[in-house]
Design a protein around this nucleic acid. Structure first.
Length: 547
RNA sequence: GGGGGUGUAGCUCAGUGGUUAGAGCACGGGACUCAUAAUCCCUUGGUCGCAGGUUCGAAUCCUGCCACCCCUACCA
């Protein structure tokens, strides 16, 4: 039954660019990962959830200078902002990456040194269109678009060459394609999900060339290329530096088993190429170096995946971004939390978000609609009516249920089907499907109440047993629904558990503890004779102002 | 320019060759009263972006077009 006990599970988010202010995009990815992490803890898996910030880039040191701070001070300040937002939103990440940490820098240096030693990283020369005013290279297509002139000052772009360290990506083309092919149709599914995202990557891998992985001009803010003796001050390109975070923070005796189980990487669609091609190629290359075979072990190859979500956009379809001024910043997010509660925000983002290949509009109206229909009118109201009837008719105490199967005789989708659907949805990262199945359990309760009409049954005489059975069944189904819903709405579920004598669930799950989903969804866990407390409304209905 | 994705009921979305295209929400009708005027049942509602093609049969495969989005090396 409990074959999943102690199974390691590793889930990550991208590490966020420390020059940004936290906004809905960051919150969304992290929240999705959090829901998944909680689900795995709930079923007893040995779970590790990692997020953090990416701090090394020339622009970070530029921004720091603008603010009269050292790069480290600037990074410290902004990293704290991310950490605070995530803490406030009760994200249960097990560690927080900082690429400026000694741990990260030391490990990246080791990896790159190993790759240089193996020959997969070599010194070469990069040539490109250079904008002297901006001190940056302009991609070929952009250069053409700008008619080979600087878009800023109109001066002609110049061809410039510089020393760079390159990674032999081309060498790994075939291995990558073979890897992709092997993963298609495997139990865990494609390496890149949703699968629709895979094609563009496969096409591009076929033409992949070696890529430069070092930069100059970062003012020393970055990880130096080990062994580089040139005077140019070569640092490891931030992207390479950043990708390695998934490894550096679990590369020790206590945590390596998480890596070896195969990571689930959540990312947004714009950064797919790095994760889908360069990242696995780096792992392949590293695994060929002495002592690193574990990096690309069988479990990693079978289970690691990159899940790519799309964007939250404004109602008019614009991408949420700082420049457009329409993004949900921490203050706006706080407003939603204050008004509806953190769980409501979690539920909405996780079940209505752009987890698929299309963008989702963040609509306040839709938010209210979902809050009222799913949370307030279903979960909230259903638990309220069952508690009220129990209080009124049975002195607030669950009676014995003479026939546990009674509930299963009700019309509607059988409970077992919903449990399977939930688990399926979670395991394949279809959070909307999983959430629906959990809500459907609540629907089952409501329609069962209509069917059996416990409110018309007397609590004494020979009908008492029937009444007790019905209300017990309702409470049991709600208890099971609450267990399924915990990854989405943990606070409210824990509140509900304390009312029905299941406070021990919360006790188990506290401080990233492990639960026992398989046991907790078994029918008949509620102890007859347990008092039930009605309490305040879990999700008070939100009154829409009439215009 | 090249590569890729998306376009299905008013809204959010399922649905990758096969009976009259589905769900939730919203709307309309009915029922009920235990509950947060909550719940339950039923109805309404779609030229599946447009135009061709393949097929006994297409939302589903192919071609073209339109709209939006992502990628296309120092912008997580």
């Amino acid at each position: 039954m409990s074959t999943h006990d102690r199974k390691p599970f590793y889930v990550t988010t991208p590490i966020y660019y420390v020059n940004d202010k936290p906004h809905l995009g960051h919150v969304y990815t992290t929240m999705v990962a959090d829901v998944v992490a909680r689900y795995h803890r709930l079923r007893g898996d040995d779970t590790f959830f990692l997020t953090g910030v990416d701090e090394h880039a020339a622009k970070v040191s530029d921004k720091a200078a603008e603010h009269g701070l050292s790069p480290q001070q600037w990074a410290d300040q902004n990293a704290a902002a991310f950490r605070d937002v995530f803490a406030k939103l009760e994200m249960t990440n097990d560690d927080f990456v900082r690429t400026s940490s000694d741990r990260h820098k030391a490990k990246v240096t080791e990896y790159v040194a190993a790759l240089i030693a193996s020959g997969d990283v070599y010194a070469g020369e990069y040539t490109g269109w250079y904008d002297a005013g901006q001190e940056e290279y302009v991609p070929e297509n952009k250069a053409k678009e700008y008619d080979y002139k600087s878009p800023v000052n109109g001066k002609p772009l110049v061809k410039k060459a510089e020393k760079n360290y390159f990674f032999k990506l081309e060498k790994y083309r075939d291995d990558l394609l073979k890897f992709y092919a092997e993963r298609d149709g495997s139990d865990r599914g494609s390496y890149v999900q949703p699968e629709a995202r895979k094609n563009e990557i496969v096409n591009r891998i076929k033409e992949a060339n070696d890529i430069p992985i070092s930069r100059t001009g970062s003012n020393g803010w970055g990880i130096p290329v080990p062994g580089d003796d040139s005077s140019g001050g070569q640092t490891i390109y931030v992207w390479i530096d950043a990708l390695f975070n998934y490894l550096t923070y679990v590369d020790d005796d206590d945590r390596r088993h998480y890596w070896e189980s195969g990571a689930t990487h959540f990312i947004a669609k714009d950064i797919l190429w790095f994760h889908a091609a360069i990242w696995p190629a780096l792992q392949m290359a590293l695994s060929k170096c002495d002592g690193y075979a574990w990096v690309w072990g069988e479990e990693v190859r079978n289970n690691q995946l990159v899940y790519t979500h799309s964007y939250w956009v404004s109602e008019s379809g614009e991408k949420m971004s700082k420049s457009l001024g329409n993004f949900l910043d921490p203050a706006a997010i706080d407003n939603y939390v204050d008004e509806f509660g953190l769980d409501a925000l979690r539920y909405f983002l996780a079940t209505r978000g752009p987890l698929g290949t299309t963008d989702s509009a963040f609509s306040p109206d839709l938010f209210v609609e979902v809050y009222n229909s799913d949370l307030s009118k279903k979960i909230g109201n259903s638990s309220s009516r069952v508690a009220a009837m129990t209080a009124k008719k049975l002195d607030g105490m669950f009676g014995f249920a003479s026939d546990y199967r009674h509930m299963h005789l009700a019309t509607g989708t059988p409970l077992g089907v919903l449990l399977t659907g939930f688990q399926n949805g979670m395991d394949t990262l279809k959070l909307a499907q999983a959430g629906d199945c959990a809500i459907d359990v609540v629907r089952l309760v409501d329609s069962y109440i209509e069917e059996t009409e416990p409110f018309r049954i007397a609590a004494d005489g020979d009908t008492r047993e029937e009444l007790e059975t019905i209300l017990y069944s309702c409470a049991e189904a709600l208890r099971i629904a609450s267990v399924l819903l915990w990854p989405f709405i943990p606070d409210k579920c824990e509140q509900f558990w304390s009312r029905i004598g299941c406070g021990h669930y919360a006790e188990r799950l506290k401080d990233k503890g492990r639960g026992d989903l398989a046991a907790w969804v078994q029918w008949g866990q509620l102890q007859p004779g347990t008092p039930i407390e009605k309490g305040e409304a879990l999700f008070p209905r939100y009154q829409v102002e009439k215009k």
